[in-house]
Simulated scan of single mutants.
Amino acid sequence: MDDLRERTRGKLIQNAIFSLPSALIIAAAIILVGLGVPIPILGDPPFNVSPVWWLAGLAPLWLGVIGMGVASRQAGERAMSQALREAFDLSRIRNPSLRMNVKQAIAYRERIDKAVERFTDSAMQHRMQDVANQVEAWVRNIYALASRLDAFQNDEIIKKDLNDVPESIKRLKQRALQEQDERIRRELDETISRRQSQYNNLLKLETAMDRAELQLENTLTALGTVYSQMLLLDARDVDGNKAQRLRESITEQVNSLHDILASMEEVYDGSHDPVERRRANLSDGGAR
């Protein structure tokens, strides 16, 4: 989207300013002006030009270096890569497989942007850039999906509940069969019901995560297919059915991932509700 272009442009300018040639020119200006080094010929009588005027000669040189850095195609590719990797922090994903999936999605995004540059006509390039921008939303959803899967796989509370809740239900049912007091038996039945509801949510969550993991693999394959199709597009296809089908395919993938994420959040929140868990634990403990 446009914010990626802004981030890339900012990163490009920043890289150019802090490049080695730029640093050398700045250092030279500091030394020449700071030490008061006379300007050859102009610094001697009768001109007596101040050393500060070194800046007048070095400033255009410095701006030229910055301009070359900004215009460099390789520098542009490097800046985009940095912007993407900053937007999608891979270090936050601990699972190596999920991290590799996101890394692959980012790589496809970079290659798709390069594929847009094949179109020399500005109008065509603008239309294809819109397609590339759609892909960024796709990659954002891939990152969000991988992050949620990673959180689930590393959630020790969920893991513990999946192991402990069935045992708790079994223990409570045995206790209910032996209990003679009607009031306590009703309390046990209520606790069993809450525990069973909690376990059902946990199983739904596990199923949702399995589906999400499969969808992540499928959407990466689809992203690779879109990249291949973009490489095959030519100027005649930009306004035709091929480009339109490409846009529709991307929109479908983005919406599909959005729906899965929404579903995951709903189930995850229901299975991870600390209030409900505390209530069940207290009831379980009081019924023993």
Rank of each mutant, 00 (worst) to 15 (best):
259 D>H: 11
155 D>G: 05
168 S>I: 07
89 D>M: 06
49 V>D: 00
178 Q>D: 11
138 W>C: 05
138 W>Y: 15
239 D>V: 08
129 Q>G: 10
202 L>N: 04
236 R>A: 07
204 K>M: 12
3 D>N: 10
46 P>S: 05
70 V>W: 06
24 L>R: 09
231 L>T: 11
108 Y>H: 12
271 S>P: 04
23 A>H: 03
277 R>W: 06
274 P>N: 05
159 K>I: 11
168 S>V: 11
243 A>D: 00
148 R>K: 15
91 S>K: 14
72 S>A: 10
197 S>A: 14
206 E>L: 08
43 G>E: 02
191 T>H: 06
17 I>P: 00
96 P>W: 10
116 V>A: 09
5 R>W: 04
8 T>V: 02
188 L>T: 01
201 N>E: 12
194 R>A: 09
246 L>A: 08
200 N>E: 15
152 F>I: 05
73 R>L: 11
142 I>M: 08
6 E>F: 08
13 I>K: 11
216 L>S: 02
132 A>R: 01
126 H>N: 14
266 E>S: 13
175 R>M: 14
267 V>N: 06
238 V>T: 06
171 R>P: 06
118 R>I: 02
206 E>K: 15
165 V>L: 03
95 N>H: 09
16 A>L: 01
5 R>E: 13
237 D>L: 05
207 T>R: 10
275 V>Q: 14
198 Q>M: 07
286 G>S: 13
272 H>E: 07
89 D>N: 13
100 M>Q: 12
270 G>M: 00
286 G>W: 15
148 R>Y: 04
76 G>Q: 02
72 S>Q: 01
119 F>W: 09
275 V>N: 11
212 A>H: 01
95 N>T: 10
163 N>R: 12
84 L>K: 04
39 I>Q: 05
58 L>Y: 10
162 L>M: 11
279 R>Q: 09
13 I>Y: 12
52 V>W: 14
281 N>E: 14
156 E>A: 15
42 L>G: 03
103 K>M: 09
124 M>F: 12
92 R>L: 07
63 L>N: 02
169 I>S: 03
37 V>A: 13
11 K>D: 06
221 T>P: 05
1 M>N: 11
232 L>Y: 08
75 A>N: 13
50 S>N: 12
173 K>S: 13
110 E>G: 05
211 R>V: 07
280 A>V: 09
88 F>R: 04
90 L>H: 02
140 R>K: 14
246 L>Y: 06
101 N>P: 03
165 V>E: 06
252 E>R: 14
